[in-house]
């Protein structure tokens, strides 16, 4: 039993895939360093991230399977779920056999697992484009905090860049302590250990009150249905939701 341990980067994951394909003894787990728990029975195989090997795997997926398959692998990686590494490996083993039609083969368990995990990330990406809330802070910056299950802020960044191209904005993932910064031209992802408290001072504002008023008034009281509301908008997302966090 050997567990591959990688540094958590996408290149690191792809390097692990490369090693796994050429290894005699296949890994029983591929896991990020920070998720690894010591286990007496398990042999540790540290994978050194190698950008050349990663590049080979990357283009092999894109060309020999499909760009869609590459997207799925990337989404599965962003899920940060502990079993994502092995799901990706097993999926790619099937993928290199079948080729571009692999994603249609939903009766295959490995393909199905990949379908589920990448769909999960895609779903949250879509959800966050809706329930993320900006507030105006100092210097006319739009600032949003989110705590998504999966690492999706880089996936929503292009969406907001397109809409708010004339604004400066920050999307702060408080769970992972990273943020998307956009300056009316381009966006980057940076670590945020602590944001200047001067900046995040809760100054907002009349529009937040207006929004809460609207939110309350638009509901039909005789049809009140908190279960339906929570199913559509799970409570774990309410923390930074202007209308629910009063």
């Amino acid at each position: 039993m050997i567990s591959y341990i990688y540094d958590g980067s996408f290149d690191g994951l792809l390097t692990s895939i490369y090693e796994a394909f050429y290894a005699k003894e296949k890994p029983t787990d591929i896991i990020r360093e920070e998720d690894f728990r010591e286990n007496f029975l398990v042999e540790k195989g540290y994978i050194k991230t190698d950008s050349e090997k990663a590049r080979k795997v990357y283009s092999a997926i894109e060309n020999k399977i499909s760009p869609e398959s590459l997207r799925r692998v990337f989404y599965a990686y962003l899920s940060e779920l502990p079993d994502s590494g092995m799901i990706i490996l097993r999926y790619l083993q099937v993928g290199f056999k079948i080729g571009s039609d692999v994603d249609l083969n939903l009766a295959n368990e490995d393909v199905l697992n990949m379908d589920k995990i990448s769909r999960l990330v895609g779903k949250e990406r879509h959800r966050i484009t809706g329930i993320l809330r900006f507030k105006k802070i100092k210097e006319e910056i739009l600032y949003a905090r989110v705590e998504p299950d999966h690492n999706i802020i880089a996936l929503v960044a292009p969406h907001f860049k397109e809409r708010l191209k004339g604004e400066n904005f920050i999307i702060h993932d408080t769970k992972r302590e990273i943020g998307v910064f956009y300056n009316k031209k381009e966006w980057i992802v940076k670590d945020i250990e602590r944001l200047d408290p001067f900046l995040v001072k809760d100054s907002e504002e009349i529009y937040e009150d207006l929004w809460r008023t609207y939110f309350k008034a638009i509901s039909i009281q005789t049809k009140t249905n908190p279960k339906l509301q929570k199913r559509n908008m799970p409570m774990r997302y309410w923390k930074y939701l202007t209308e629910k966090n009063i």
């Binding site: 484009t129 939110f215 309350k216 039909i220 049809k223 908190p226 339906l228 559509n232 209308e243």
Partner: peptide, 30 residues
């Protein structure tokens, strides 16, 4: 979106919240 413009639309539509009756809020409906 246009040059120096604000906003665009998404073909599939986006829900931004769900009111207490469980209905999707996507637009400012007034």
């Amino acid at each position: 979106n246009k040059k120096d413009g604000l906003g665009n639309t998404s073909t599939a539509g986006i829900c931004h919240s769900w009111s207490d009756d469980g209905r999707c809020i996507s637009l400012l409906k007034i």
